[in-house]
């Protein structure tokens, strides 16, 4: 059974899907990721699908589920590297993947996660921020 490796880089878990996944492999990835998020305490997950020829409804659902699971575990998921033909096909298939954040490449994905974390800090420190604005 093939397994998709999950790499830890700083505060981010990086998954680069390089194989044509069977449904079973996709389900295993979902479980592996949930465990790794908890084990590492990472706050971001980047799923790189540059190498995927297609995203069908099963893989699309897996991506949505991973995003939801990681959210509950206090991590932000960004899907990066979707090919144009895959995007066109997904929309026609009827999968809009509204719940998933996307970025064009890994670098932008990391920026998105960093920005999402900063936003949260601003929300926590909301009062302080208002004061700063008032004084300037």
């Amino acid at each position: 059974m093939e397994r998709v490796p999950v790499l830890k880089i700083g505060d981010i878990l990086l998954v680069s899907i390089q194989v044509d996944m069977s449904d079973q492999t996709a389900v295993m990835l979902q479980e592996d990721l949930a465990e790794r998020i908890v084990a590492t305490g990472c706050h971001g997950v980047i799923i790189d699908i540059t190498a995927l020829d297609i995203v069908d409804s099963f893989v699309g659902r897996m991506l949505s589920t991973i995003a939801s699971i990681s959210k509950v575990l206090d991590a932000e998921t960004v899907v990066v590297g979707m090919r144009p033909a895959v995007a066109i096909t997904l929309v026609e298939l009827g999968l809009s993947l509204n719940s998933i954040r996307t970025a064009l490449n890994v670098e932008r994905g990391m920026e998105l996660i960093a920005a999402a974390r900063t936003d949260e800090w601003v929300m926590v420190d909301g009062d302080e921020d208002a004061e700063t604005t008032a004084t300037t």
């Binding site: 020829d53 297609i54 995203v55 069908d56 090919r83 033909a85 066109i88 096909t89 298939l93």
Partner: peptide, 17 residues
């Protein structure tokens, strides 16, 4: 074309499942 290949392979994946 690449887009048509992608559409067909995706459809085949759904129907095979």
């Amino acid at each position: 074309s690449l887009v048509d290949q992608t559409k067909l392979v995706t459809a085949a994946s759904e129907l095979a499942r």
